[in-house]
């Protein structure tokens, strides 16, 4: 079965989830961009999420908004968004209240994709350690479904940018079997989602980034529907 056909089939399964999100948010599904303190540029890669949302709608049929929404961790509206995304180059710092709100959001059905844009790693891991002192970021093997559907990534998360030249890795935090956090490191998917002329990525690299983004988004919605 081709990847595109797989995406189409999956879109049918995901439709119910999207409906739930529509009913809750009275609008198309969108991605919430986490606005954090600490000095990091939470607003980095401004064209990335609009592009990803467009591709998700085009490839799966799930109606999506044109743009993401920016949201702070303590905002009560956080619960309205099934998919939370964060990126940046600098430090991440949450207040105790924000940590509590994020933990509650994630344990109660939310999903966070953190994408290191180079420089986020240390502070992000610290904050995750504070939010989930009882959990660890575990590396996701290539066999994990997030790399299998609708697009196949037999080697795991693709490499988009050089950064430190290390292999790209994807980590996760699970809660009762559910993947609640995905952290992509040394890959920079967000750069790959940006407009082609921003980083002048080769088309195949950009396509890999978008496919991986679609995989992550669909996986998050699928498991929140199950």
């Amino acid at each position: 079965m081709s990847a595109r056909a797989g995406a189409a089939l999956l879109a049918v399964a995901v439709a119910a989830t999207a409906e739930v999100a529509l009913a809750q948010g009275s609008g198309p599904v969108t991605i919430a961009r986490l606005q954090y303190e600490g000095g990091g540029d939470w607003y980095a890669n401004p064209s990335s999420l609009p592009n990803l949302l467009t591709e998700i709608e085009a490839r799966t049929g799930i109606p999506t908004a044109e743009r993401e929404v920016a949201i702070r961790p303590g905002d009560p509206a956080l619960r309205d968004y099934p998919f939370l995304y964060m990126t940046g180059h600098g430090d991440v710092r949450f207040t105790p209240d924000e940590r509590l709100a994020l933990r509650r959001y994630l344990l109660e059905g939310g999903f966070l994709h953190a994408d290191d844009n180079y420089g986020l790693d240390e502070s992000f891991r610290q904050e995750m350690g504070r939010i989930f002192p009882d959990r660890e970021l575990v590396e996701l093997p290539p066999e994990h479904p997030i790399f299998r559907s609708p697009y196949e990534f037999p080697d795991g998360v693709p490499k988009i940018h050089e950064h430190d030249g290390a292999p790209p890795r994807a980590f996760g935090i699970f809660h009762q079997g559910r993947l609640v956090v995905v952290y992509t490191y040394e890959t920079d998917l967000g750069d790959g989602w940006e407009d082609p002329d921003v980083h002048e990525d080769p088309p195949e690299v950009r396509e890999d980034a978008l496919r991986m983004g679609v995989n992550i988004f669909l996986y998050a919605l699928m498991q929140s529907a199950s």
């Binding site: 980095a44 180059h89 093997p141 795991g156 940018h161 050089e162 292999p167 699970f174 690299v205």
Partner: peptide, 21 residues
């Protein structure tokens, strides 16, 4: 604050094995 890095295309790298969950 941003100090955004220059983007650079990836070079060669070697993936390490990842144990099953």
């Amino acid at each position: 604050e941003s100090e955004e890095r220059e983007s650079e295309q990836p070079g060669d790298f070697t993936r390490e094995g990842v144990r099953a969950l």
